[in-house]
Each structure stands twice: as structure tokens, then as C-alpha cells.
Simulated scan of single mutants.
Amino acid sequence: MLGVTGLILTTDGDENYDAHARILVSNHTLFLDHIITDILIPHFMPISRPVTPFFEWLLSLKMLPREKSKEEIKTLVKSFCDESTFPLLFYPEQATTNGKVGLLKFNVLPFDIGHLIQPVGITVSRPTVFNINITVIQSSWMCDLLWCLFAPYTVYTLRFLPVTEKKENESTVEFSERVRFNLSKSLNLKLTDFTRSDKTDYLKRKQLLPPSQNAQSAEKKADKKPQSEVRVEEQPMDPNLQRMIEQVQAVLPHVPAAAIKKDIEVTCDVDVTITNILEGRVPFAEEKKSSPNIGDGHHIANDISQVTFKAESFSKNVKERHLSLEERKALMLESARLKYKQKHNLL
């Protein structure tokens, strides 16, 4: 019946299967893994999201209430394994992968129950001539099902590994890592430090990206000049960003606006960007601008150091007080810049 639908099911290492094991642990490739595995090994699969009683019975699911604590869930799973004649299937990665690169970090719940662990490695393949991926990162169960039916055939291979038991003086984390290592070695996959949360965060960032451009706009983008050659004023810019760039250029007029913009988009702070430029953390080609002959920089630093930054009087006009504050702030920045140059012999 599966062959008619294009799903071919094979097994490997049948001699390693132990019917007494109450916990099945497997990698997760498709949303159909549970249904395919249930054909060979009748089992229940714990889930935390609510479903109707009909689907819970039809798909052999076991509800684990979200509102319960970890200890309560652990007790619930342990009592079920002690009483049930069918094992529980866990996907400790808690997220699907394409099964070609590596395994995600395991959740330790199934390894803390105290029962034998039956590792099951799942590999899925399709005809290479059609170049159809097994799954994609944003795939849904409906998408996986339709592609399984659309592809000429999909080969499911369940590889049974020897039953594993927790050793004495072995922590739950060490036990889970030992099972993960054996499973990755059997499937020829790498051990990664990524978790389900990392995949979720990646999907959120991916959704925030702008939509992909069509082929015509992509070609136009390829023909454009590099970003370093594009003039800043030609790009649409936030007025607040433009104001900050102008403030930095008022202190460092020899620095190109493009270099300032690149750093200030990261720092979002005028003073930090000025410090980064003065300390050489912002690479740029010096922009030559005509300026009056101001003589030796040491004399300028000495002159500015003698200037007082205190206001001569307290103006009753708010606008005048603001202008006075801005002038004194600019003078302080210029004094700091020249003192820095004098200290490091940059004048």
C-alpha cells in the first residue's frame, strides 16, 4: 500500500530492536516520521500543543500539558511508560532538519525517565535526477505530505541502534550526549551546538528580511557600483542619521560621510563613532578638503586647552541656552580630538 503512494519503507539493524524498551529516541526529518515509524513500531508520541480527542486517538498522540512543571511532566511520562504496553517516541531535537548535515542539541527529558532507550535513526532519500529536497526550513506537514505524494518515490530507512542504558555516575546530559553521538555516527552526521531555539530565531530573522527581488532587478543590482563608490547623498537616508553624520563631520571633516555612516549605523552614537575613528577602528581614505592655513596643530591644541567651556552667563532664552550648549559641546569634542592627536604624535 505504501509503495502505491510512492513511500518505500525499509529497515536496517533489526537485530538491535528490543521490544522491552519503553522509550524510542529518533532524529526528526519530516512531519511524517511519526506516522511512518508507527507502521513498524506501534507507539505513542508525546505532544504539548492541544489537539482534539479524535486526532489524539487517530494519530496515537499523548498530551503533555504545558501548564505543568518539568518534574510533573517527568512523573507523568514515567507513569505512562510503566503502565503502557506501547513505547513513547521522542524527537529530542524538538525540530525538523534535512538529515544531511548534523543533529541539534537534545532535550534531556526522555533520558531522565529511567527506562531503556531504543535509538532509531531515520534517513530519507528521493531520486537525485529530479533534485527534490527532502524538506526545507519553513516546511509544514501539509507541504511534506504533498511533496511525498508528488515525488516519484520517497525511501524511508529506519536504522535500529543497540538499546542504551544509563551508566552509574553518569549525568542525564552525558547520557543524552552519548546517545546523540551514537546516532550521529550511525547516520554520518555532525554534532552541532544549535538548538530548537536557534532554528526559531533564524526563522524570525528570515521573516523580517525584505522580499526577494525579481531577476530583472537582481541584474540591475549586479550592474551597480560597489557600496563604497556610491555617494551618501544619493541614498535615501533617515534625517536623524543624516544629522548625526553631519555632527561627526563637524568634528572630523577629513573623514568621508560613507565611512561615518557605516560605523554610526552600528553604534547609533556620535561620540562612540568619533572615538572609533580617532582610535583607528574605522578604515577610510582621507577626504581632502580646502581649509584655511591654521598653522601648527600644537599651538591650536594649546589655544583650545586654555578656552573655558563654562557659559559666560545664563540666558533667559531657551533657544540661546541650547545654542550655547551645542557650541560648548562642539568645542569640547574638538579639544578632545586635538589632545588625542597631540598625545599620539598625529599632528
Rank of each mutant, 00 (worst) to 15 (best):
P256H: 09
L323T: 05
K105F: 01
E56S: 15
N107L: 02
N169E: 00
E286W: 08
P226F: 04
I73H: 12
L347K: 07
T96S: 08
S186A: 14
I260G: 14
R337M: 14
H43M: 12
F314Q: 14
L59G: 10
V120L: 13
L241I: 03
K70Q: 06
S176E: 01
E168V: 06
D193Q: 13
N98L: 02
P46C: 11
A285T: 07
E177K: 13
T192N: 11
P283L: 09
K262N: 10
E165L: 07
S228P: 07
G102H: 11
Y153Q: 01
E229I: 06
E286S: 13
L241F: 05
P226E: 00
L149S: 01
K221G: 04
K166C: 07
T267E: 04
T37R: 10
A259H: 11
Q94C: 06
S184N: 08
K221A: 06
P127D: 00
P53Q: 02
N345P: 15
I47D: 10
L338D: 00
N293Y: 13
K341L: 12
V248E: 03
S60K: 15
N98G: 07
S176V: 02
P236A: 06
L191Q: 10
E229L: 14
N345V: 03
I137N: 12
G3H: 02
K261Q: 14
E165F: 05
D144P: 12
S79C: 10
V272S: 15
L209D: 06
I134T: 05
R337Y: 11
R66M: 14
C81W: 04
K316V: 10
C143E: 01
Q138C: 05
K100M: 02
L325M: 11
D14E: 01
F194K: 11
T29I: 14
D12A: 04
Q342W: 03
F175M: 04
K261E: 07
N317F: 06
T52A: 15
L333N: 14
R321L: 15
Y17P: 14
Q227N: 04
S48M: 13
L191A: 07
T10D: 08
L278R: 12
Q247C: 07
S315V: 13
S60C: 14
T172W: 04
E165P: 10
Y156C: 02
E334Y: 12
I122R: 01
L278K: 11
N107S: 06
P283W: 08
